[in-house]
Amino acid sequence: MEYLDFEKEIQEIKNQYLNCLSIEEKSGVNMREVCIQLKSKLERTIKKLHGNLTPWQRVQLSRHPNRPYTLDYILSITKKDSFVELHGDRFFGDDKAIVGGFGKIEDNTFMLIGTQKGRNTKERQYRRFGMPNPEGYRKALRLMKLAEKFHKPIVTFIDTPGAFPGIEAEMRGQGEAIGKNIYEMMCLTVPIIVLIIGEGASGGALGIGIGDIISMMENSWFSVISPESCSTILWGKWDKKEKSAEALKLTAEDMYKFNLIDEIIKEPLGGAHFSPKKTYKIIKKQILKYHKQLSLYDMKTLIKKRKNKYISIGCFNEQ
C-alpha cells in the first residue's frame, strides 16, 4: 500500500500494528492488548487526519495509486462471469481509456460503462491515463444505444483527468464526440446512473456524465478544469494547485451544496483504497437503491425531469 505525504502518521502506526500481528503469529507471544491498542490508535489517527481534509488532499486521494478503478468496481459488483466487455466504436477503433459492457448486479442487467486508468506504467500508457479519444466516447454511445434498445439501465463510472488533448483526437473530432454524447444521453429512453469515483475533469467527464442520478464518492472531485491546468492558466504557474483546488470548489461536499449532484457516497474509514471490499459493497448497494428509485418513473417523465434539471442550472441576476 502506498501512502500520501499527509498520511505518514497513518503509515507508521499501521506498520507497527502489522509488526505486532506478525510477532504474535511467529513467536506465539500474547500481544493482544498491544494490538488492540494500536488498532484503536490507528482508527483515531485516520479519523483525525481524514476528518478535516483540504480540497487538494481530496484531489490527492482521488488519484491514490491504490484506489479502485472502474473495472475493479464492475468485476466486484457484478455476478460472477456475467460481465462481458464489449469493444469498439464500429467506425474507427477501440479506445482503451473507456470500457463497457453488459453485466448483472443481483438479478438486474445493467450496461456498465466507465473511464479506465492503469496501475503500472505500461498499463497507464495502454489506458492513456484514463483520457479518452473520440472513439472512446463513440464506443460509449454505441453501448448506451444498445442498452436503450434492450431496455437496460445504464451506469457510468467517471474517473478521468479529461479528454485526451492530441493531434489525432482533434482530427477525429473530440469536441463533436463529447457534444454528441451529451446530446444523445439527454434523450436516452433508459434510466442513467452516474457515479464519480475519482477524478471528474471537464468535458471529458461530462461526455459520459449526463444522467438521472449523479453521485460522487466522498474523495472524488468534479470541475471544469483540473487544479494544475487552472493554476497554469490563471496564475501563470503550475504550483498554485492547492490554491486552485480550493478556489474551484470541486469537492463532493461543494457540489452537493450547489445542488449539482444528488448524493455523496461515504467511503470507508481511510478512503476507498483502505478497504476496497467494503467500498464495492457500498457502491453495489447504492446502484441497486438508485435503480429502484428510478424504476418508479415512466421514461417520458424521467427524460423531461432529466432535461429540466440541466436547463435549470445556473447562477445569474436580471436587472
Binding site: 451529451i182 439527454m186 471537464s202 461530462l206 471544469v224 478544469i225 492558466i233 474551484l248 440541466y310
Partner: peptide, 23 residues
C-alpha cells in the same frame, strides 16, 4: 471555452444548452 471562474456551474452550461437544443 467554459468560464473557469464559475467552475462546475460553467461546465454544466454545456449540458444545459444541449438539453435545450434537443428540444
Amino acid at each position: 471555452g467554459a468560464r473557469i471562474m464559475e467552475s462546475s456551474f460553467s461546465l454544466m452550461q454545456m449540458a444545459k444548452t444541449i438539453a435545450r437544443l434537443t428540444q
